[in-house]
């Protein structure tokens, strides 16, 4: 399956070729955590991952055509 991935704050460095917006092929039934592993994200990083507009837990199973956004959480106001 293929998913669209967009990397923001603190995650661009894990995007292939440094492009923050790319398509990624993954085995069917992959989780968000497996996507992070495939990108070489250290396991203790635990970025904010959103699928199709909403935050998901890292064991969330991805579907073909999903839109994934990931970033390191910031705070403020």
């Amino acid at each position: 399956m293929k998913v669209r991935v967009r990397c923001f704050t603190g995650m661009q460095q894990y995007a292939p070729g440094g492009r923050g917006d790319f398509e990624m092929a993954l085995p069917a039934g992959s989780s968000a955590r497996q996507l992070l592993e495939a990108l070489g994200v250290p396991p203790d990083l635990e970025p904010f991952v959103a699928v199709n507009g909403g935050k998901v837990a890292l064991d969330h199973l991805l579907q073909d055509g999903d839109d994934v956004v990931m970033f390191r959480q910031m705070e403020g106001g």
């Binding site: 923001f8 704050t9 603190g10 904010f48 959103a50 507009g53 909403g54 935050k55 956004v69 970033f71 390191r72 959480q73 910031m74 705070e75 403020g76 106001g77």
Partner: peptide, 22 residues
């Protein structure tokens, strides 16, 4: 360890979080 946060993008960085938490 985490060279991000308020220094780099200011508080405006929070849009990413609030948008994706709805």
């Amino acid at each position: 360890e985490t060279p991000l946060g308020l220094t780099v993008n200011g508080t405006a960085g929070v849009v990413l979080t609030t948008q994706h938490l709805g």
